[in-house]
Write a protein that binds this DNA or RNA. Structure first.
Lengths: 194, 194
DNA sequence: GAATAAATGAAATGCATGTTCCATTTATTA
DNA sequence: TAATAAATGGAACATGCATTTCATTTATTC
């Protein structure tokens, strides 16, 4: 009666929620894994009902898992912006982004028609950080100004994702991508002939 | 042996097969269309069973439909190789390829884990044609030789697809892509500074 | 026009998946 | 330990889909 609000949430529920989250995250790093509730529950050693209930639905679970994966990526982008020049930040971040996406292909593949608010917000943060890199690089003269910054950002994001998607992952391809993209993004002072 | 005298195939079956093929093809050009047998059958004014039976399965139907769409694209690549310089062929073809893919997104989206032999073969033809363009362009000095030709081809194919996938389709993005990619693919005689 | 076999499509089946139910188990508090 | 309510998970349910069945329709042949 006088108990302090009585613990409404049981400890095992909290722990199981975490287990489900960990299982989902782990599956996203496994190539070819099918992110079904069943598979996640099996990996977490829980019943499917428990997994679903802990988040109120499969989508919310995936949203939480993807967000957790994406957070350090966004933080890294911000850190790079603070630590080094925009030009260098752009190159370093793109390389790391491709590696991350290649290691978590499910993050970008099987999440097609889902409603993932937290993930969407983080993606927006990421886009904003890349836009800052591009803005800075333009000011530094290493990125051409004859292409709209937003278009440039979209171009980078879409193509980086595509390169990361290729299976099996190829470091050669990633390297070639960075070389070609960054060269192509350089300003053309003159020289436009075929 | 190929066509025995006794008409083993009824005329309506042949016609309906064509209707199903047309319906599937049409749906592939409709953004957001969900290529279910049900939807294809409805569009063709046929029963779902008829559609499936005409091809022996949904996969075979999609394979036939995609192949029919892809054939003129492959032919166009070959024609360009015969008609003009590899450098010009590459640019023209890439522009057209993006437009085609953008207009038939379903061709590249919803066909993830399917077995489509004819489509796979045509894709290989297409890759071969692009490889020829790149080989030729290298000889012409418009494409860098410090990146493996196969890697270059993969890079082009994957990124072009990614650009085409963006919705809504953006001509600005497609133009930016072609500009950046082709510039980035140019040989770097010198000039390697940050 | 009758006979025959091929073709059709609405309904049934099978399968994979997400979600909900509810009898049982378990954490929590006193 | 007893009392209570929260949490669990196997089973049932719901949904969306491709495929198969089979009574009926239709093209084809004579």
């Amino acid at each position: 009666m006088s108990t302090p609000a009585g613990s409404r949430r049981r400890a095992d529920a909290v722990r199981n929620r975490q287990l489900a989250l960990d299982a989902a995250t782990a599956l996203m790093a496994e190539p070819g894994a099918s992110l079904t509730v069943e598979a996640i529950a099996r990996k977490a050693d829980l019943g499917a009902a428990t997994v679903v209930r802990a988040f109120g639905g499969k989508d919310a679970l995936l949203d939480a898992a993807v967000s957790r994966l994406l957070e350090p990526v966004v933080r890294r982008a911000r850190d790079l912006l603070a630590e080094t020049t925009p030009t260098r930040a752009l190159r370093v971040f793109l390389r790391e982004l491709i590696a991350f996406q290649a290691a978590h292909h499910a993050v970008n593949d099987q999440l097609g028609g889902l409603e993932l608010p937290a993930t969407t917000a983080l993606r927006a943060d990421l886009v904003r950080a890349v836009e800052e890199m591009i803005d800075g690089a333009r000011r530094e003269g290493t990125v051409r100004t004859d292409i709209d910054p937003v278009v440039t950002t979209t171009l980078i994001g879409q193509t980086a994702l595509a390169v990361a998607r290729t299976r099996p992952p190829s470091q050669d391809l990633a390297d070639a991508y960075l070389t070609v993209l960054l060269d192509g993004l350089r300003p053309r002072s003159e020289r436009t002939g075929d």
